[in-house]
Design a protein around this nucleic acid. Structure first.
Length: 153
DNA sequence: GCCAACGTTGGC
DNA sequence: GCCAACGTTGGC
């Protein structure tokens, strides 16, 4: 069982959108490090903290809820779709290059755990998302960090 | 809206 | 294979 953190701009795709959709293919990741976590590290049943980036005063940047991996890794078809925002001309049916997993909604936190709170916590300040300049959209979370968050909710 | 930090591209 | 230039991310 592994734990993860997945980032999305709240205004682009939020935890509320996932709650509505119940399940979503996490398409559009075009970073090899993030892709490799999905290809090699994720297993069905893993839990992922759902983080909103690019927040504002009303909706601060932070962790808003929980999602769960519900599929094995599969080709990201949006890379082969010319009309898609994240189309990659190098991706083909034979060599899809980009892959993704499906996430299902688990829960929305009553109150989000803001990045400010994460950075001020002795355990959580070591999370990848709390590091200066961190742009990784998918990152591993340690069991210690995950349990710590559970106690703060 | 600013801008630092980052990943990627492409010329050499 | 280096590295400057570029486009993007994301906190503030």
């Amino acid at each position: 069982m592994n734990y993860w953190l997945i980032k999305s701009e709240g205004e682009c795709y939020s935890i509320d959108d996932l709650k509505r959709d119940k399940k979503i293919a996490w398409e559009g990741v075009r970073n090899y490090q993030a892709r490799n976590f999905m290809m090699n590290g994720m297993h069905v049943g893993d839990l992922a903290l759902f983080h909103h980036s690019n927040g504002n005063d009303k909706n601060p940047t932070g962790i808003y809820g929980l999602a769960k991996v519900v599929s094995k890794v599969h080709p990201d078809m949006s890379a082969q779709d010319k009309k898609h925002e994240h189309y990659d001309p190098k991706a083909t049916k034979e060599k899809p290059i980009w892959y993704c997993v499906d996430f299902a909604f688990v829960e929305k936190f009553k109150i989000p755990l803001t990045l400010k709170e994460i950075k001020s916590d002795d355990v959580l300040k070591h999370m990848v998302v709390a590091q200066r300049g961190s742009r990784l959209s998918i990152s591993p979370v340690s069991e210690l960090q995950f349990k710590r968050i559970e106690t703060l909710l």
